[in-house]
């Protein structure tokens, strides 16, 4: 009986005041953990490039005179189609919203060769696995009168740059 009491007594005592060895062990664990997590957090953003060195996201498409009403121009390397109707100018991305293939125009429809998605003239999905409409991109004019398309900025379907 007295033995058990003695053991209990010592263990309670040890919990209250940490031995030097336990304290240093805890400190070492903490230090190792802190060092490794600093390294890890420091590297967290490493794989994401600070800037994407690909083709420019904003490009010039010409002047207003180049786009009479009813005109249509495809910029193949930029994957954009620019059209003008009575309401104004608008640009639609030709990148399929399904898996990024390039759609082409057949009989008034945009067709994707990869999985057969079809979009109507305004880029709305008619058929196929594409989850959403082709993107409409912002068209604007520089002070010198040149028109630009910004492929980074999406606009709601039907938005036109009035001329």
């Amino acid at each position: 009986m007295s033995n058990v009491d003695a053991v209990k007594g010592t263990s309670a005592y040890e919990v209250e005041s940490m031995s030097r060895r336990d304290f240093l062990t805890t400190v070492v664990y903490g230090a190792v953990g802190a060092a490794l997590s600093f390294v890890l957090f420091g590297l967290l953003r490493f794989p994401k490039p600070a800037l994407f060195p690909d083709i420019p996201k904003i490009f010039k498409i010409g002047r207003v005179e180049d786009f009479p009403v009813g005109a249509e121009k495809i910029f193949e390397d930029k994957k954009v189609i620019v059209r003008r109707d009575a309401g104004g100018l608008f640009a639609i991305s030709l990148i399929c919203t399904h898996l990024g293939c390039i759609v082409s125009k057949h009989a008034g429809l945009f067709e994707c060769p990869c999985h057969g998605s079809k979009f109507d003239e305004n880029g709305k999905v008619k058929i196929g696995p594409a989850p959403k409409a082709l993107e409409w991109l912002k068209v604007s004019q520089l002070p010198d009168g040149k028109l630009i398309v910004d492929t980074m900025r999406k606009v709601p379907i039907g938005t036109r740059y009035a001329i």
Binding site: P47, K48, P49, F52, P53, D54, I55
Partner: peptide, 13 residues
């Protein structure tokens, strides 16, 4: 996608 391509489209990265 960015992690895989190092960019938003396929290029040198």
């Amino acid at each position: 996608k960015v992690l895989l391509l190092g960019s938003e489209e396929i290029g040198q990265d």
